[in-house]
Write a protein that binds this DNA or RNA. Structure first.
Length: 127
RNA sequence: GAAGUUAGCUGGGCAAUCGCUGUGUUAUUUUUCCGUGUGAAAUCUGACAGAGAGGAAAGUCCGGGCUCCAAAGGGCAGGGUGCCAGGUAACGCCUGGGGGGUGUAAGAACCUACGGCUAGUGCAGCAGAAAGAUACCGCCUCGAUUUUUAUCGGGGUAAGGGUGAAAUGGUGCGGUAAGAGCGCACCGCGUUUACUGGUAACAGUGACGGCAAGGUAAACCCCACCUGGAGCAAGACCAAAUAGAGAAGCUGAGGCGUUGCCCGCGCUGCUUCUGGGUAGGUUGCUUGAGGCGUAUAGCGAUGUGCGUCCUAGAUGAAUGAUUGUCACAACUCAGGUUGUACAGAACCCGGCUUAUAGGCUAACUUCACCU
RNA sequence: UGGGCCGUCGCCAAGCGGUAAGGCAACAGGUUUUGAUCCUGUCAUGCGGAGGUUCGAAUCCUCCCGGCCCAG
């Protein structure tokens, strides 16, 4: 699988977002909160397997547009590199107030921990 | 060379790897249409080529284009601007000039909401006699009482005192009962007037007025000029749906839209109940009052001619990440370590305002040195 | 992205050119055996910030800062 990031691996519609917010598995640390839900079986039949990503970076937590853009880009980059390790889930990532002052490497480390944690969780559920 | 002032430009560079979003070419997957040409259209995934944040993209404070409302029409109301001339698509912007003010070692510079209180109305707490036509103290004079002092009453007076942010031109001389532009000289003042210069604002000179009662228009207002409303979530197209149906009620001088109101104009029956049901996509969307170079007119803003270039177009929202190296800054004996301003397009332009590390250039002023 | 509104004490607020009302809360005192209620007093703490107009700005004007609402 290629490490690409195009439209069909993102959450696009309000319905998809609200489905994640409704009943999520949480994973959070001081920088980010990750919400995850297993994907619908029916929809998976039509498209390819894999996880999908949605971002929710509020103006409250990162006031400047530059910061918001930076956070989103870092999350996408990390997701792109790690998506082959993830199960078929929908993710929503939210920023916390401390995120904007964190360095790029710190955010990457935080994200990797989240990926590992989620991968373990969902494998256990399947078993 | 140093310091200062002003104006303009720039906004880290290069390389490697992995990605993202448009465009073009090409291959491929799937679908649809005509109907069977290896057509047309859409779609998916690759490859290659070339492109991909700003000077403020920001604040949304002005002005325009564009779109709809009648390609906006009349009146009132409302809003805006306010020395003069020019520039511009337009402006509350810019350029040049005038008046006023600030400031420096330097008249280098900088700032300026700068029409009209003699059209009318209003306002000025406290203090003060008085804040708009004024006599508290004081000064002078007349009358009465009185030996005088003094007291009371009538009148004149704004020179002096005191209050205030502000008190009716200033100084001197004359003049007077005391005073007063009452008169004169100088200075100041001016919807007065003549001449000169200037397109004009205005400036200068002379004469005249005797100063006419002040301040405040970012107070109402008056004058002159400008101004229709809403905004790309405008609007257009495609598909679904609001449908259609039934019942009841209301009115035709009605309802809806167009601006706050009145006209005018356009569309049209309206309301409630029953029942049923929802989904978005495409376009607008980037070639423009465009950039660059050059010639030319102009003090300048800017205009004109010629040549040349095509340079983001996202939509849960692309323009990135990592590494190396160079540049700069801070720390450090060195090795090295850390950091690199303000900040992210959303229909597009012209301004203004605010934020901004560092670097570069030019002009002017003063000082120092050399010839 | 566009359009609109608001900042006055810890909270709710009036005032809109002339010394910034009032209520709640807080604090102190009184009443009471104690507490609540009630009474009296205090509240130097405030007009979001910076300029300007004015003799004088919370109020008028300009520019910023912060917050809220509406439009798919």
């Amino acid at each position: 699988m290629r490490a690409c990031f195009s439209k069909h691996v993102r959450l696009l519609k309000p319905d998809e977002f609200s489905r994640v917010f409704k009943n999520p598995v949480r994973s959070s640390d001081r920088y980010l909160t990750v919400l995850a839900v297993a994907r619908d079986e029916v929809k998976i039949e039509n498209s390819d397997f894999g996880s999908r990503l949605g971002l929710a970076i509020s103006k409250k937590n990162a006031k400047r547009a530059v910061d918001r853009n930076r956070i989103k880009r870092l999350i996408r980059e990390s997701f792109r590199q790690n998506q082959q390790n993830l199960p078929a889930i929908d993710l929503v990532i939210m920023a916390k107030p401390g995120t904007k002052s964190a360095k790029n490497q710190q955010i990457f480390q935080s994200l990797e921990q989240h990926w590992n944690k989620l991968a373990k969780n969902f494998k256990n559920q399947d078993v």
